[in-house]
Nucleic acid binder design. Structure first.
Lengths: 232, 232
DNA sequence: AAATATAAAAGTAAAAATTACTTTTAAAGC
DNA sequence: GCTTTAAAAGTAATTTTTACTTTTATATTT
């Protein structure tokens, strides 16, 4: 049945898992979705969403499968972060894990399923301590997210259809954990010409109101220059 | 003997390999070391240096082990690039591979062993077609090398102890496959203050001669700002 | 209805970095 | 001493960044 001509190396086969750092944006806050681990060891403690990589399945497919099962979401934006393989990283046994981060819009119908699994959204500053090396994985995912955010406007995957420049700036404030200057941020973002201004205004945050923007369709204004020169 | 509490998931275990893109710099050329594959399938064809990740071994240790075996080099600079896991990427069977790139100084004693293994150094433009997805792996490694080279002066790992600014610029020309302006390159590099000028000159390339430089010891002038704003 | 308050949006000017060049320099070799 | 070479230094225009100030549109208060 199995046409694998490497079967002679059988005894070297390894456990391979995926772990997902799931970022979402809600109430002006960048959050990540954490789960209470379902199996021993460390059952019940907070961890990233993880799962085994099945036979004849790519790691990305595995990540999508677990994500779908736990959140019901398809077509999630995924980026591979790093592979961790220290034989002692998991006290339960030697497991190689391939890390991804996912960006999802929290307003989507994700929430129902999520709660069934004892999962919860946490801000970066309020998240609990995680099992194994998962704190490191979060740190690494954040680095990668920051890198990507400095080369393209990441909001497309995290913000709702229409948003104000203040929303977008606030997202960047969260990602980089610093305050961007409102005027300069606006100037920089608009100069990239990837946003389109709508006629509608958001009147909830100021008396003047702030215009809503939306992303132009992809490619129609793509760019690859760094957004913030010194941001990394 | 085995304390692995995941043994019940046994049937999911996977073949895991490492592949190394080995960069070296010789005769003003950025080169990479390719091997003629020793096992079926595709035996004898050109490929990256690869090997199985053994039981209870990290992927980085595996990469170092294979590198040492084939080149005799220890303390090689390694950076993880990406993990490839398409079940069909290797016609011999479903193998997950974790990719690293290595930077080595070709002048080191590496060469003797290398030849025994039917290996050869190739420039980027003259390299043969590689097996499986290895051409993609090379492309990915180059991207990562470029990214890193734009955040730190990469030459420390590739150039000899002492080198001229022309040598360094030439290395960057190779890495980015473009011509940097000599004057501007010099200005930029020197402004970073990571190099120390020696009194000795290299008289082989010009009548005036070019001062040799060496890297200052690490940390004493470290930086993390991009070297070239538009280089990525 | 006018005054006030607010954040959005626009504007400004200095500083820093980049870019595309030109000029000067040190030494080799005729 | 003259010529040649690439190294090294210099220059000036342009672009980008940074740290601000001013103006604007609208809801709320007086």
């Amino acid at each position: 049945m199995d046409t694998n001509i490497y079967e002679q190396y059988q005894e070297n086969k390894r456990f391979v898992a995926v772990d997902c750092v799931i970022f979402g944006y809600e109430e002006e806050q960048l959050k990540l979705l954490l789960f209470q681990r379902a199996i021993e060891p460390a059952k019940g403690e907070w961890s990233l969403l993880g799962g085994w990589v099945n036979k004849d399945e790519s790691t990305e497919d595995a990540a999508r499968r677990v994500l779908y099962k736990l959140t019901g979401l398809k077509d999630v934006y995924l980026e591979q972060v790093h592979t961790f393989s220290d034989p002692n990283r998991d006290p339960g046994g030697s497991v190689i894990t391939v890390e991804y981060y996912a960006l999802i819009k929290i307003d989507e119908k994700a929430s129902n399923l999520i709660e069934d699994y004892g999962a919860n959204w946490f801000t970066l500053t309020e998240m609990p301590d995680l099992i194994f090396d998962h704190n490191n994985l979060v740190e690494k995912a954040l680095e990668k997210l920051r890198l990507r955010s400095s080369y393209e406007i990441i909001g497309r995957k995290l913000l709702p259809e229409k948003f104000t420049l203040t929303h977008l700036r606030n997202l960047y404030d969260q990602i980089f954990q610093r305050k961007f200057d409102p005027g300069n941020f606006r100037k920089k973002i608009l100069s990239l010409k990837v946003l389109e201004r709508l006629e509608e205004k958001d009147m909830s945050e100021s008396k003047k109101g702030a215009f809503y923007f939306k992303f132009k369709p992809k490619n129609e204004g793509e760019f690859s220059d760094p957004i913030f020169k010194r941001s990394i």
